[in-house]
Write a protein that binds this DNA or RNA. Sequence first.
DNA 1: GTATGTGCAAAGGTTTTGCCCCAAC
DNA 2: GTTGGGGCAAAACCTTTGCACATAC
Lengths: 149, 149
Amino acid sequence: MMSLALASSTTSIEKVLHQAGRRVTPQRMLILETIRESGGHLDADEIHRLARQKAPHLSLSTVYRTINVLKEVEVIEKLHLGDGRPHYEIKKGEHHHLICRGCGKVIEFQSPFSDKWGRGWGEKYDFEITRAHLDLRGYCAECRQEMSG
Amino acid sequence: MMSLALASSTTSIEKVLHQAGRRVTPQRMLILETIRESGGHLDADEIHRLARQKAPHLSLSTVYRTINVLKEVEVIEKLHLGDGRPHYEIKKGEHHHLICRGCGKVIEFQSPFSDKWGRGWGEKYDFEITRAHLDLRGYCAECRQEMSG
DNA sequence: GTATGTGCAAAGGTTTTGCCCCAAC
DNA sequence: GTTGGGGCAAAACCTTTGCACATAC
């Protein structure tokens, strides 16, 4: 059922699921691969629509249940990009987002932000910081050009 | 219908509503005052529950409609604190949040640094930044003590 | 008086759940 | 063979909307 192409990139998630006592199923592999291939930032319905191209009767409830499993085992995480819905991305090292108010495009960037500034604020308020989320909203070059043109 | 106590703090919002061509109603005043008095960060249902203590048959739809009006006239803004629901706070100068994963407490702080940081990233990606949202999640002193005790 | 706002109930959209069958282990 | 997982449909939840009446202007 799974293509050879995805076998290599799914090896580690299989271990993670096993170690968490969860089963490895084609649906879970497909949903994870869909998020991976997309480059991230999909909402539940987008995951469903894309994944159904490969597995036409994958149900939306399986997508939601799988999202929750993948969050539990910390393979993906939830983002709030400003439209109503939560979006999901593969969990990786701390990074932040530039979010275009015009076209919705999301640009990721790495920054030692939380190390350099976060720690200071944590100390000031006697707060142990586990995670910094920095979202910068504005307009990308293309959208600015369209607006002025 | 309105108490004298709130008259002074609601003067400016009345002007804002008038200038936007929107009517000033007791419900709108009450809802705004509820958010103000709470110190911020309420969700729609919390606003409804609190405001109904003073106006028992205020409807939830009025709360939602008023939230939208107050957002339009830029008196409040929406926050995502990590639980599912959006929360709302009075709009003021740019500030950021320390959010406790234990008890949900929110501490606000001002930082002149996010601007500087943000600007740098904006230039790098040819992105015009209009707003920086920085959320630092972790554990407050009380919750850390409870966990270790 | 007119148009906007409100309350209520119904509808809409998203996420979760119950149930039964199926498949991973 | 057992038990967790998937599909489907229904329920639960949160938010918006239609309508008739009320009220700010």
